[in-house]
């Protein structure tokens, strides 16, 4: 039945609303839907040609146009499913950009160690989109100079110094208070401002 592949795609998008990470791009399924739509288009062209031939006989009777009509409806349905899938994923990418978080795991899931980059599950065009969107945010942020960081934490900090645990190797960072070598599973007592960005990105966990 036409539209079945498209339904699978939407079901996949619906399922991923429950997940904390963005699942793999369904490239093969999308290609199937596009192929199906191309088949439908070929059928529409074929039927339209026949229609012109037989038009003289059946004035005002639409019965023969029904098949043509259904092909059009199926194409429209496929288009809607494809667009909705892509839009849903684009919105997730934007959300990730604002959190300044390219690991694909949202920050409100503490303890969830970042497992590989989201980039693994992205399509080439989506990667490009994410990159461009990040650039847009950075450029927009520049308008406010040093006075405001739009991507910063909304909550005011309670303590100046905090305990953090390293979830993923970062390497050396240099702060006013010296150099820290952030290796996995180690713990540090550091100034919040120095590591806020790393916490957001999912490298560090606040204790």
């Amino acid at each position: 039945m036409y539209g079945d592949a498209a339904d699978k795609l939407v079901a996949d998008a619906k399922r991923s609303t429950q997940l904390t990470h963005l699942p793999l791009y369904q490239g093969e399924l999308i290609q199937n839907i596009i192929n199906e739509t191309n088949d439908l288009q070929a059928e529409v062209e074929h039927l339209t040609n026949e229609e012109i031939v037989s038009q003289t006989q059946s004035q005002g009777d639409r019965t023969n146009q029904c098949q043509l009509f259904i092909s059009h409806l199926a194409m429209r349905r496929n288009k809607r499913c494809l667009l909705a899938y892509q839009r849903y994923r684009a919105e997730r990418l934007q959300y990730m950009s604002w959190l300044n978080n390219t690991t694909g795991i949202t920050v409100d899931e503490p303890g969830a160690a970042p497992s590989g980059k989201a980039a693994d599950s992205l399509n080439h065009n989506e990667e490009e989109y994410l990159k461009k969107y990040n650039e847009l945010i950075i450029n927009y942020n520049k308008e406010f100079n040093e006075s405001l960081d739009l991507t910063g934490d909304i909550e005011p900090p309670k303590d100046i110094f905090i305990d953090v645990r390293v979830l993923k190797d970062v390497g050396e960072i240099t702060t006013e208070y010296g150099v820290f070598n952030l290796t996995k599973d180690s713990q540090f007592f550091v100034r919040y401002n120095d590591v806020a960005r790393l916490i957001q990105q999912g490298y560090l966990q606040r204790l």
Binding site: D7, V10, A11, T63, R80, Y88
Partner: peptide, 21 residues
């Protein structure tokens, strides 16, 4: 147009009867 729930609802199968051949 982009609402996933709306798209899924649109896929609900309904029984129907054809009036013409």
């Amino acid at each position: 147009y982009y609402d996933l729930d709306d798209i899924i609802a649109d896929n609900q199968k309904l029984p129907c009867k054809f009036n013409v051949t």
